[in-house]
Design a protein around this nucleic acid. Structure first.
Length: 268
DNA sequence: AAGCACTTCAACCGCCCGCAG
DNA sequence: ACTGCGGGCGGTTGAAGTGCT
């Protein structure tokens, strides 16, 4: 036989913790520690709570040295960088931010950072589209060629990226076959049709970062990934910008990155 | 002042993995 | 070898707070 059930779910209290419950839990742990057994702890501490609930309350709220309040620019950048690399592994991200809990970071991401990234992506997309349309109008002889997906795809070298992945390699646009090729993970602006403009991972990049990804074709040689990967791409751009205020104007960095010297050289 | 929409975040839910029994 | 609990984790929910009309 296994162990006995951790608690009688019908008799335990749920919902917000009262100051009295907080005091009991804190006093007990201050005096005795957790004892490595959360299930037995509420009974010993005189609490009518499930052990898991006690653990959560302690770790996320009562534990000493917890930070509450706004996240700093550095913390923003660390979160973006780690999210871009490992995704929603909040406990690992929290381990890099002393005083922050995984729940804090998860909430912060879901309520603020994600919106900033999505907003920035939308602005960058609009910026990218307007640049293309003006370019097409001003160059009548090459308009048909410029409208093709691969032709519109700029080179996006990313530098100063930290381990475990190295994204500093270039990607190459094969104009004759209208395909994108890469010798290493990197970001691309696919420039695909049907509203698919924006910042996307190429296949190699996505698999390197997330392990596996569903790939949706969007015209020859262009790939659009799901929301998580898209946000990871945007987070990666922001994290490597070296300036947290880019969160407010991410499209400017993204644009400068996408239309940098290497892109100009490739286009030339 | 009232009603509604939106945001925030504490807490719960359900799953996975390791390990006690 | 097998069962099932305990700890840990990410996803989700819903009450409270806030802002807008």
């Amino acid at each position: 036989m296994g162990r006995a059930p951790c608690c009688d779910k019908a008799s335990v209290k749920k919902g917000p913790w009262s100051p009295e419950e907080d005091r009991k839990l804190k006093e007990y742990i201050d005096e005795n520690g957790t004892g490595g057994n959360w299930i037995a702890l509420p009974h010993k501490a005189g609490l009518k709570r499930c052990g898991k609930s006690c653990r959560l309350r302690w770790l996320n709220y009562l534990r000493p040295n917890l930070k509450h309040g706004d996240f700093s620019d550095d913390e923003d950048r660390i979160i973006c960088s780690l999210f871009a690399t490992i995704g929603s592994r909040w406990s690992i991200i929290a381990a890099q931010l002393p005083g922050r809990t995984d729940n804090d970071i998860k909430n912060y991401w879901n309520t603020k950072l994600k919106k900033k990234l999505v907003h920035g992506l939308e602005r960058y997309t609009a910026h990218s589209l307007s640049q293309r349309s003006s370019s097409t109008v001003s160059s009548s002889s090459s308009a048909a060629v410029a409208a093709s997906p691969a032709e519109a795809a700029p080179i996006v070298p990313l530098q100063h990226l930290s381990s475990p992945h190295d994204y500093s390699h270039l990607i190459y646009s094969d104009r004759e076959q209208q395909t994108l090729r890469t010798d290493a993970p990197c970001l691309v602006d696919s420039g695909g049709g049907g509203g698919g403009h924006g910042i996307y991972f190429d296949e190699t990049c996505a698999s390197a970062i997330s392990g596996s990804s569903v790939v949706h074709g969007l015209g020859t040689g262009n790939f659009v990934f799901g929301g998580l990967q898209l946000l990871q791409a945007q987070a990666l751009l922001l994290a490597t910008s070296g300036a947290a205020n880019q969160l407010d104007e991410p499209y400017s960095f993204a644009a400068s990155c996408c239309y940098g010297e290497e892109a100009a050289a490739a286009d030339g």
